[in-house]
Design a protein around this nucleic acid. Structure first.
Lengths: 295, 295
DNA sequence: TCGATCCATAGGTTTGTCCTATAGTGGCTG
DNA sequence: CAGCCACTATAGGACAAACCTATGGATCGA
């Protein structure tokens, strides 16, 4: 149960001399003699052949010396792993993206984290805000990207980035010919395509409140995914408001993207995690994200 | 350096209850509390989250519990390996056969040893008496089969088997027609083929002394290997004395094998090892061989 | 034969772990 | 809401284990 004697024996086997080994171990030579004898008694095995003037290792002694070195190494490694875990430099972090996460933002964060904590194993998956919150609460993931604003019991959220919201116009639309920024008054009554509010009330209200402060014009079509919204715009059904990275990624013939006048509408990228006892890896990821967000 | 606290922590992590864990460890609960705190201080890491009424493991605590179990397992295995080595049930044994070893005898011994000590790794090679003694003295092998009688400084030898020596006669020889045992007088002057005495003086003298007690007749041809002796006999050059298993294995057209009258000539199979501090595996092999030889 | 080197033994001291007794805290129940 | 129960933490004294200094015995080389 005590590795001290193993340590003593390993050093003795290296030095093959009680006096020198004792000096290396910072103990008196009689103590070492005594402990080695006790070690042999404990194992019930003769490790030294004391028949000659210069003792020799028995076969079991050679094996014991090797095992002792391994055990001490193992102990050292175990200490290291535990310390690294406590520092957040080792372990496993389960991260959920959102499908609509602003293009490179979340991925950049993950990449930066990976390079800074190379010994943390990352498990990545992709969900959406409400799913990520559910899985977070269930303990199935450790951190999840979300679209604020939102509040959930037992969940903490930090804004770790934001991006501009663009207007997607049918290319045949009169406003598509306008080169500069679009005024809110010009689109106050234009038909709109949007996704169902229940898919993300927070983000829905954040976008609509900024783009159509006087109230959303008639919604002529609802589609769950940005890709289908873009298709609907291309078909001339109406105009849509879509986060910049997403809109550029989904750009297609028949759709032009335009910026809105000041104040520019923006939506945030949030990072959510379970409140309370935060594991070190989660803390590391959150802190890195906050730094990247400039807070 | 002391695994006691690791053990305590491993049990605590299993029970998740100081009182029960202390009972399982046969210590009072306050001791366990104290040792766990000391363990955390020693590692410089918080292993328990004591914020609630029922403590929880931190991430580092979970890792520490797993590492503790591994370490204790490792310790147990190490003890086992050392004990097995001391018993002669583990390790490595380097054995050298002799090319002319009586057929199945040595191989049977090795097979029996292997089945009785399956965790001993065997390194087998084939040499001859004088080479095996050299390699033994040099520490390149642990035991070697030899042809007694012989003496060598620092080497012990035990007879572990014996076999009859047969006469190989040219099939055209007058004695080949005789069905029973051959009398020594009949061959006292017959020309002989033999191998050079310097290849193994002990065995040479043992054979010649038993087969030709009055002195070896003229040696008409010398060949180093039994196989070539048999060929020489087949060609009618002379008669030869060859150990039974070997002779039967090399049996060929033109040669007949005949037994000699009482006292039947025999040669022994010896097992040699370094004298002095005998390693447990060697001791095991030697003891098994002696039992098999009925001593 | 003497000295040097090395390991073992003896006896007293210190350190660490254990114990018992008791206090503090949160949850459950009558 | 008060009292009880389960659980963990703290305090102080007891004991065992390891350590140290001093010394003895054995072997080797000069």
């Amino acid at each position: 149960m005590d590795l001290r004697r193993w340590h003593y024996f390993a050093v003795l086997a290296e030095e093959m001399n009680f006096t020198r080994a004792a000096a290396r171990l910072f103990v008196a030579q009689p103590s070492l003699s005594q402990q080695i004898r006790a070690f042999e008694a404990e194992l019930g095995v003769a490790l030294l052949d004391r028949s000659g003037p210069r003792f020799a290792l028995t076969e079991a002694g050679r094996v014991a010396a090797a095992e002792a070195r391994e055990l001490l190494d193992h102990l050292e490694r175990a200490r290291g792993v535990i310390a690294a875990t406590a520092r957040g430099d080792a372990g496993r972090l389960r991260i959920a993206y959102t499908r609509s996460a602003p293009g490179p933002l979340a991925a950049d964060l993950v990449a930066a984290y990976r390079s800074r904590h190379p010994d943390v194993e990352l498990a990545l998956e992709t969900g959406w805000t409400s799913l990520n919150l559910t899985r977070l609460a269930a303990g199935e993931i450790d951190v999840g990207f979300v679209r604020p604003p939102l509040t959930a019991p037992g969940i903490e959220v930090a804004v770790v980035g934001s991006e501009e919201v663009l207007l997607a116009l049918p290319s045949g639309h009169a406003l598509a010919r306008h080169r500069g920024r679009i005024r809110r008054a010009w689109i106050a009554t234009e038909p709109v395509v949007f996704w169902p509010r229940e898919n993300g009330p927070g983000q829905y209200d954040a976008i609509s409140g900024q783009v159509w402060p006087e109230g959303v014009p008639p919604i002529v079509r609802e589609e769950p995914e940005d890709e289908q919204l873009m298709r609907a715009v291309a078909e001339g059904a109406g105009i849509a408001a879509i986060p910049e990275h997403r809109a550029r990624a989904l750009r297609r013939r028949g759709v032009v993207l335009r910026r809105l006048e000041d104040p520019v509408p923006r939506i945030d990228l949030g990072l959510a995690w379970r409140a309370g006892a935060v594991s070190p890896v989660v803390r590391g990821f959150v802190e890195l994200s906050r730094q990247a967000a400039g807070r």
